[in-house]
Nucleic acid binder design. Structure first.
Lengths: 352, 352
DNA sequence: CTTAGCACTCAAAGGGTTAGAGTGCTAAGA
DNA sequence: TCTTAGCACTCTAACCCTTTGAGTGCTAAG
């Protein structure tokens, strides 16, 4: 049996309607749609066919049909109508994004919140490093007799620092010397390349080095390690409960717990090689917990060697067209925003 | 009518039992408790009295009694048995805390997660600044021909920085000069004290100052403002759904939404003058949304002029004794931990 | 002052019936 | 050959009615 154009049209209508109502769709409802010029009996036959083809399912004999995973897949890949953002929608997304954002982690929180608001579903946003990070440059700034500031300029152009206080006097000259040594030996190294042997050599370089070096190096390796870590935020969990399929508390709880834990942290991996917006329909998931949940996600570019991803989690019956459109637009706007670095540094822009 | 010892005992038993079962408590159940040497009829009379006194409520005629807000209040203030942490519990809290924590915001997330785990309820944790922050010292580090690093040492001993790139050449001598001027004029000032007049004076100090100063000052004031902001994290929202009173989706959703938004950010204000662990029973709340919810919270000391607060949100029927005990212990352990600053800087402590 | 006993109340659970939405199939019509 | 009106059939959800039993307040006796 082949998928005729009419079958596709019927399937699309069913998915559309089901997305709106969350109720099984009957033949009559479809037959009554404006541009459906067939009787309910004809639709009924088509629906029977679509069911044997595996695109529809029947909760029970006397209920309407609901799309199967395969049905959603086909819908997402082929049938779904382009959702064009209204000017209002685009505008509200834009103004939301334009609020300045500061550090990456704070930013991911903010982005997740915005995405969740825009889609009315729980959202996740992840920032992850593309390659290994190294230190480009060390600076030691004296900040009092027993304290100094360690400043690291990373290969990502991120700057990290730490105020270090020690119970001993530190000479400015020592710091200068030590700084030079650090820059000579440790720049460009991955954390695992910083060996004990290397350290000993540095230790002998300056008077107070023996005490300072371990502290400095510990902080450095820790920073490098953490910098490779992905940074993830979840927002709007509560919105899940609006969806009729999560009115069942146990289901909702399971889902929320999954969101709470990092069960989703492997999602970015799925995006690794993909481009554009990707839809994962229920049973296609790796994680068992997400069986009747779909995820829509997109990559965007943060710059500084950071890879961003935003995603939305919802029932398999979610408004794919709308969600996909908003998400893509969001990702695009974010990428654009990060492409203009001054926008970040100069918070307001038009001050006196 | 007076609150006799026996009445108190009955009330305590009722609250205890209700906390365990979440079901209205009947006279028979109380009468059958091990150390209750009265018949159900007697208990019944006592319960009737407690009801007219306002400590108990009756959902309907033929149901048992549940504690009223006043009942919980009395329970928390007077009747509740001390909950002693078992060695296991204390141990697991300790090891959880000992994992090193890095920046304040990340830390608050972690703490919230830990508290939520320890109490099996949603938790919030807030860090807020006690006084206004100022800049103690500016440093400008050249980092390439068109870029430099701005390092601020704040009055809180926190260090903040930013890599600034500009489309123009910057001379090292200019930076030095500008740094000196900044240190001379802007240190110790609150953001609102940095006026346009002051800026103009600085602008004339060095060649490229006109371009650099706005960027630097914008970042500085922004940082100072943000530093005064409270930093809050919520964790374990999903656990709320375990509680029978939140099996009602609408209620759960309202509550989760409240947690999602910052409706709780005014809670720390309540703690301002209080000390130790504080319990807010349902209707005593300022926020309308929290009417049938209790909050248990405690302050702890982060150091660096930061004030921490951890809190737990749950049904009015929550195990106050247990929650209070765990929270207090948590706060104490955290305060202790922050009192030893080296523990933070030296991640492991016993390396080589 | 305590308690056994009893009549009374009322929510919750069980059971049976009904309504109606939706189906598949058949046979007539285009 | 495709479409559609018509009809018998299915099955859930809603409704109503009844029963059950936990819990109460009151009374009167110990």
């Amino acid at each position: 049996m082949e998928l005729t154009e009419r079958k596709k049209k019927v399937l699309r209508s069913i998915v559309d309607l089901y997305i709106r109502t969350a109720e099984p769709v009957g033949s009559k409802a479809i037959a009554e749609l404006p541009d459906m010029n067939y009787s309910s009996a004809t639709i009924r036959n088509e629906m029977a066919d679509l069911t044997t083809l595996g695109y529809l399912e029947q909760p029970h004999t006397s209920a309407g049909r609901i799309p199967s995973a395969a049905g959603y897949r086909l819908y997402v890949d082929e049938l779904m109508a382009d959702y064009r953002l209204s000017i209002d929608e685009a505008h509200s997304i834009n103004t939301a994004i334009e609020e300045k954002m500061q550090r990456v982690d704070k930013m991911m929180e903010k982005v997740a919140k915005l995405v969740s608001q825009a889609t009315d579903l729980p959202a996740i946003s992840v920032a992850s490093r593309r390659g290994g990070t190294t230190v480009k440059r060390f600076d030691l700034i004296l900040a009092g007799s027993g304290s100094f500031i360690l400043v690291l300029l990373l290969s990502t152009d991120e700057v990290v620092n730490k105020l270090i206080k020690l119970p001993l006097h530190i000479a400015e000259s020592d710091l200068k010397l030590l700084g030079a040594v650090l820059n000579a030996t440790l720049t460009g190294l991955a954390p695992e390349e910083i060996t004990g042997e290397l350290l000993e050599r540095i230790m002998n370089s300056a008077e107070s080095a023996a005490t300072l070096v371990p502290v400095i190096v510990d902080f450095t390796t820790e920073t490098l390690r953490r910098s490779g870590t992905t940074n993830m935020a979840v927002a709007g969990q509560a919105r899940l409960l609006q969806q009729p399929e999560y009115r069942n508390i146990d289901k909702a709880q399971k889902m929320l717990t999954t969101l709470d834990e990092d069960a989703l942290s492997n999602l970015p991996a799925v995006m690794q090689n993909a481009n554009g917006t990707k839809v994962l329909v229920g049973p296609e998931h790796v994680a068992q917990e997400l069986k009747d949940t779909s995820v829509v996600m997109t990559k965007f570019d943060i710059g500084d060697g950071l890879q961003g991803m935003i995603g939305v989690v919802g029932p398999t019956r979610m408004d794919y067209a709308k969600v996909t459109a908003r998400l893509s637009y969001f990702a695009e706007s974010l990428s654009k925003m990060f492409a203009k670095p001054e926008q970040q540094s100069l918070p307001e822009g038009k001050e006196e």
